[in-house]
């Protein structure tokens, strides 16, 4: 059972977390023409990297959405950052 560090709450048991998405995808501007391939890639293409990954996770108790860099083989967690800028 892993320990993830919520950028706000600190270290917590993995059961409090939910995988949301692979990081790095941007929603295409749907007010413009989008060819089917671009949209299909946005919807379905996953890198599923072996090794170092960048992912978006949610800490369910506080709903924080954050970026987590981790190793999908060793399960080592390198860093977590809020998806948005930390308030000043």
């Amino acid at each position: 059972m892993q320990i993830f560090t919520c950028p706000f709450c600190g270290p917590r048991d993995e059961r409090e977390f939910h995988f949301a998405a692979e990081a790095g995808k941007t929603r295409p501007d749907t007010t413009r023409q989008i060819d089917p391939e671009t949209w299909a890639t946005y919807l379905h293409a996953q890198r599923n990297d072996k090794g170092r990954t960048r992912e978006v996770w949610m800490h369910l108790p506080c709903s924080e959405l954050f970026l987590m860099e981790r190793d999908s083989v060793t399960m080592e967690v390198f860093s977590t950052h809020p998806l948005r800028k930390e308030p000043q």
């Binding site: 059972m1 919520c6 706000f8 709450c9 600190g10 270290p11 917590r12 048991d13 059961r15 409090e16 369910l60 108790p61 506080c62």
Partner: peptide, 21 residues
């Protein structure tokens, strides 16, 4: 109900206990 200790502080009081929020 949780892997919890007062020795590890948290900024938030929200957590899961016995799987309940």
């Amino acid at each position: 109900g949780a892997e919890i200790t007062p020795d590890i502080p948290s900024r938030s009081t929200a957590r899961q206990l016995f799987g309940l929020g």
